[in-house]
Nucleic acid binder design. Structure first.
Lengths: 205, 205
DNA sequence: GCGCCCATTGTGGATTTCCACAACGCCGAT
DNA sequence: ATCGGCGTTGTGGAAATCCACAATGGGCGC
């Protein structure tokens, strides 16, 4: 789903037509406020791949302000933003990209070029969603651990022997074994190596 | 060390003066060919933090071509490139950043702004060098493993028991223990967990 | 009060990991 | 021929890990 945010109705319609002719689903928004309100209301659609075509100069709040809010409020984080502008200059474009925009296109644009960029943005969206899903599953499993289990997890990830963990937590080695087994079961792993690889170089939260 | 690549001598001199007044070491190059030849000759300086100020329009090969060659030949990979241009447009700037340039600045530029960007580039350079040093150490240690030790490493990272590894490689379990111990020693770790974290989610090479 | 969850611990026994000390054969470089 | 490295293996014993089966006490929600 491509979201078009532009206050010029003829352009919105032309873009909608172009996207539909390329078999891309799209939804248009006449202002930044309208788009942000829609984002705040509909959170489920944000789990699907998508991208945003965002005009820099909007009637109400600017496109840049829309983007800043999306990021600040984690709205549709998996949807790359492509800026559209009829009056852009180099510093503006550079700053937009450095702030994390996916692309920056001047109007009038070449249809094929824009569609290519949108396809690239959708591919990026799918990548972000996959990454986010995995992180979500890991966080969900982590959330199921008790405080004590988390403590043991942290020490296991340091490579400590059960005996050392027991000493450090002031409990019996048998208890460490119990927690260790529970952590493995809840995290869906069969060994400390699998657990370590699940977290990679990240510290446990 | 900041490298200035520009065919206009007055600008090179002005930039050198500006950088020195801010206590930044710099070296100037009058053409892309000169800079590339210098890079090919002096590899040791590339282990120090640095950045490149690269004019887009050069007399011989273009700044863009210089950048492409730096990346293709892995020349000074730790040095971020900031493009300078007096005739840039939005698509050029966007493309440059999407190709991996660190920044893009139009002439005439604001002194303070340019220096800020260079400081940011030097910080990025230090980050890249640190990351590269760590990867280098890991690769160096990996290079010290025999073929057999690598095979055992791969299976250890899958979380296999020594007994399973022995079955799969058609050797005695005692032999697996020997290789395992050697892998740990050579990689500088004390446990399979430390080893797994060293590689994170990466597959062993 | 009852049930559930959490934290904790024990027994007994099996399996896995670790390693000092020892050894052999093959291959390539000197 | 000698040496060093690689791949391989054994003995014996200690330490670490794993877990079925069992249990206790405290806190919380119904």
């Amino acid at each position: 789903m491509i979201h078009v945010v532009d206050d010029e109705e003829p352009l919105r319609d032309a873009l909608a037509w172009l996207l539909r002719s390329r078999e891309l689903d799209c939804r248009t928004h006449a202002s930044g406020e309208e788009f942000l309100a829609w984002l705040a209301r509909d959170r489920t659609g944000q789990a699907e791949p998508g991208a945003v075509l965002l005009d820099v100069r909007l009637g109400g709040i600017s496109g840049t302000e829309v983007f800043d809010r999306m990021r600040a409020q984690a709205l549709a984080p998996a949807w790359p933003v492509i800026y559209l502008t009829g009056h852009g200059d180099v510093p503006m474009a550079v700053e937009a990209l450095k702030q994390g925009a996916f692309d920056f296109v001047e109007k009038p644009f070449n249809d094929n070029s824009l569609v290519d960029r949108l396809m690239a943005a959708l591919a990026e969206s799918r990548r972000r969603l996959a990454e986010s899903a995995e992180a979500g599953r890991r966080e969900e499993r982590l959330a199921g651990l008790t405080a004590r289990e988390r403590e043991v997890l942290a020490l296991v990830l340091e490579g400590c022997y059960n005996k050392v963990i027991a000493d450090r937590l002031g409990i019996a080695m048998r208890t460490v074994e119990v927690y260790r087994a529970r952590v493995f079961a809840k995290m869906g792993v069969r060994s400390a190596v699998e657990l370590a690889r699940l977290f990679g170089e990240r510290e446990e939260p």
